[in-house]
């Protein structure tokens, strides 16, 4: 893998990059311009330039909100890996109609609007719903999980689990059964085979799925807003409030750029990790 192979060329990137340039570049440019105005309600109309909107992100409630959001995103990513890997393994081993059925089952929740699924969670997690009834049947007092961080975590995990499973299954599917058989015939235990062979080979899928889940849950709005009550405030809920209620567009723009930056850094890191791991796996 040390030698440089001639690739199909960067020209192939043109369509995708053109879409990003045409659709996203101008909005991001506008964000930069807006963020450079002094923060405050309708401040962008006064035309006063400053970097204070970025400084505003380091004071008040924002740091705590940012920490909570990143924590929720990391926990969601971890939960989707732990829950998604077994499903992906079973999925990649399944055949024919059974496999189609499982894929459909995994994707079907996403065909339901986020708002409707959030309502489903209030039916499940409410003290008057499934959870409350279950506790009552056990002789315990009715209690619920609504409007807690746990409810948000659960619903985010549900929302992003299908993507993690699809990404992992696609990656696991590329692992030839022959490779696994070879490892087993050389005396490796199932655990060793998994850790030494299957896991490293599934790293690209893990990183691809993880990127989506992390970025997606970092920038989620509807789920935290509908299930988190007034206490579980997140990064995008904060941006929404800055835009819609306080009209502080400069600070909202700065907060959006900060989110973009955090996401881009992590995505680049993931891409580097995935590329190197797979390069090493094939180099051996």
């Amino acid at each position: 893998m040390g030698r440089v192979r001639r690739g199909p060329g960067p020209l192939l990137l043109l369509p995708a990059l053109a879409v990003v340039a045409l659709v996203a570049a101008v909005p991001v440019g506008l964000l930069v311009r807006t963020a450079l105005f002094a923060p405050g309600a309708f401040a962008e109309l006064s035309g006063e330039t400053s970097l204070a909107s970025f400084a505003a992100l380091f004071e008040g409630p924002f740091p705590a909100v940012a920490r909570r959001t990143v924590r929720l995103a990391l926990l969601t990513t971890a939960a989707t890996v732990v829950l998604g890997y077994p499903v992906a393994v079973l999925l990649s081993r399944a055949r024919g109609g059974w496999r189609s059925f499982q894929t459909l089952l995994v994707v079907s929740p996403l065909l339901m609007s986020t708002v409707v699924r959030a309502y489903g969670w209030t039916l499940v997690l409410g003290s008057q719903g499934v959870l409350g009834g279950f506790l009552e049947n056990l002789g315990l007092p009715r209690a619920g999980l609504l409007h807690t961080e746990a409810a948000v975590l659960l619903a985010l995990t549900e929302s992003f689990l299908p993507f993690m499973i699809l990404a992992l299954a696609a990656s696991l599917d590329r692992i030839e059964p022959a490779v696994i058989e070879a490892a087993r015939s050389l005396g490796a235990s199932p655990g060793q085979t998994f850790l030494r062979v299957a896991l490293p080979l599934s790293v690209p899928g893990l990183v691809a799925g993880g990127s989506f889940v992390f970025v997606g849950s970092l920038s989620a709005y509807a789920t935290p807003a509908l299930l988190g009550g007034s206490e579980v405030r997140t990064w995008v809920r904060e941006i929404q409030e800055l835009v819609m209620i306080r009209f502080d567009w400069p600070t909202a723009a700065a907060a959006s750029l900060a989110l973009l930056l955090v996401a881009a850094l992590l995505l680049a890191l993931g891409a580097a990790l995935s590329h190197r791991r797979s390069a090493r796996a094939f180099g051996q």
Binding site: G216, Y221, Q240, A263, L267
Partner: peptide
Amino acid sequence: LLSPLSLPGLV
């Protein structure tokens, strides 16, 4: 290519 995913829909 991927980071626009982190832009909130509102923004």
